[in-house]
Amino acid sequence: MRILMKFFPHATPLLYGLALLFFSCNAQPEATGQSQQQFDTAWPAPDSILQGIPIYATFDRIEPLFHIDNDTTYIINFWATWCAPCVAELPYFDQLVDAYQGQKVKVILVSLDFPRQFETKLAPFVRERQLKPTVVALADGHYNDWIDKVSTEWSGAIPATLVYKGDKTEFIGNPVHAVEDVQAVVERVQ
């Protein structure tokens, strides 16, 4: 709760109650390991959860995820099911989860799918692929307001990947062609 307070100092107790309600209602067994994995960290509370996928309506709701100041390295990839090069590099992010098993490295896939396709495309895709990283979705379509907040190096093209630990950040603006590409970046921020 103290962690929640840190990120949402202005939220009312009512909001907490609602959020808790969401968590308890949606944390069904069908949500595989994903929901369990995400809630044991200092994560911002989502606006809703769709079949185990936390959904953030606006960037400011998910923004704390980009500023977690601890000794964990975060690998955050922006993708969409409609983006072929994004889908092609997903196996490398699965491999990263395996490679850093037991280490303080977290792999997160932020889906930028069309919100109208969250249920029809994103959720079935995540279920069928059994993706190992934690998957969240961001619905904020006012890109010019938030792309620079992820990285000023980011043009808005996807795929794109941000790697950070504390205040050390590195941005990958191209498709990843090997798991080693990302591991080299992880070593640099650690």
Binding site: C83, P85, L112, Y143, N144, I147, D148, W154, S155, G156, A157, I158, P159, N174, P175
Partner: peptide, 13 residues
């Protein structure tokens, strides 16, 4: 003004 903006798009293949 603004002279530059950003938006999501598909990386050039």
């Amino acid at each position: 003004n603004p002279a530059t903006t950003k938006a999501l798009g598909c990386g050039i293949k």
